[in-house]
Write a protein that binds this DNA or RNA. Structure first.
Lengths: 232, 232
DNA sequence: CAAGCCGCTTGATTTTTGTCAAGCCAGCAA
DNA sequence: TTGCTGGCTTGACAAAAATCAAGCGGCTTG
């Protein structure tokens, strides 16, 4: 792998505290690859041969069963995915595909496990990362089980608004069909859900969204840090 | 804490590889308490002061929002809960209540974090545990998003049957109302779902269940190890 | 024993969500 | 330009699930 990528990878929480020798050793076995959009990187059920790091572009994690499919998460630069499978040396639970042209680092799982065994700073960083991921999924579970689709959309919009800087107008960072899947509904229903939020001053034009009545929307959405605050 | 409990706690995956001195030090700060049924042990949002270990009885992990409530998991002996919150020193995301008379060990979170920093075997065990928990929630997420309530019930029954030994007849280990909540439906709907499985030879009498036509039920449920195998 | 409670079930109804079919429209290529 | 394509929207309908109300039956308690 070209050394030019080292600093950005090294800067990740996961790698920043580890021994330099160990980091070099991990990087020696790793390689970077460029993928076009819509390429399936891994399939659920396959053995976890590589820990992946997204350097640029974005990756969709999804799963299928009985002819149905659902998006579980989107990975954006710079972060890793399928850490848990790598650590447990267990099959992937999700498939992954590129959403756009993406540059991805592949680090052999056995190297990760080997370094994990000898570098306790790395092990600790992995703990922090896994605990974070675990809590994120729990929040998502609560979102799904406690809220209707309209409420999920409203809260998603409020979160996205905050991420985009907090202004009344902002842009969706998903294709709508995939947003629907992430939120656990059909595209048709998402369309109707957007209309259902019009009474709260919501205006949607393609990818652009604007919240006309912030107070009313929040009153309806009832955002809760224990579900919606992803830093917690 | 009475030393008589040490061996059973020590035997947990989480603690078995750690240094004896560190284990003793953890146990010194810990204490055991007996709780009656239906006692709320922790509330979501509270700071994570203790790592909990269930020695006997059982504990329901649940969450509320906007007047609704849902069960997210049940903890049975002998295992720990709210490890992730303890590690991240973050507020609990779920509340916990005893389902029956339960004996529970409370280990101060700061002790856990301190030992975690100095005992790398302990840190590694925590990684394994967290990765396992993470994967369990992902499976549950897939179950919720990809299956109808009837399918979820059918697969739950098949899992439970396997846990109970694999015979055609077995018992539910949940109160039905809580099973409904775990499966993400109302008690009324669970009742109807049981009836909906009659064509597959299902007979339910109170807590006792018997599967008349195993092959047909499996054909309907389409169990998948990447969702239903909790050892994976 | 009777009364009352609680969990479970059932039926009727409403709400929510998904499905199917059709049409719209921006973007793109010939 | 024309004619695609694919994502999005819309309407009509069907299915799934929640809600409301009532009743059943086992259990405890006075």
């Amino acid at each position: 792998m070209p050394e030019s990528h080292y600093p950005e990878i090294r800067a990740l929480n996961l790698f920043e505290g580890m021994d330099e020798t160990h980091f070099q050793s991990l990087m020696r076995g790793a390689y970077v690859q460029n993928f076009p959009p819509q390429i399936e990187l891994i399939g659920e059920g396959e053995p976890s041969d590589f820990l992946h790091v997204v350097l640029s572009g974005s990756v969709d994690l999804f799963s299928s069963w009985n002819g149905r499919e659902t998006s579980l998460a989107t990975v954006r630069p710079i972060s890793t995915f399928i850490l848990a499978a790598t650590i447990r040396n267990a099959p992937y639970l999700m498939s992954a595909r590129t959403l756009e042209k993406s540059r991805i680092v592949l680090i052999p799982s056995q190297d990760v496990r080997a370094i994990f065994d000898v570098d306790s700073n790395f092990a600790r960083a992995i703990v922090a990362e896994l605990a974070q991921c675990y809590r994120a999924v729990i929040k998502s579970q609560k979102d799904l089980k406690l809220r209707t689709s309209l409420e999920r959309l409203a809260n998603y919009l409020l979160r996205q608004q905050k991420r985009a800087g907090g202004g009344a107008a902002f842009e969706l960072d998903f294709e709508k069909r995939r947003l629907a899947s992430v939120l656990g509904m059909t595209p048709e229903n998402l369309s109707r859900a957007f209309k259902g939020l019009q009474p709260y001053g919501l205006i949607v034009d393609g990818i652009r969204v604007s919240i006309g009545n912030q107070a009313e929307l929040e009153k309806f959405a009832k955002p809760n840090p224990l579900i919606d605050d992803f830093t917690l």
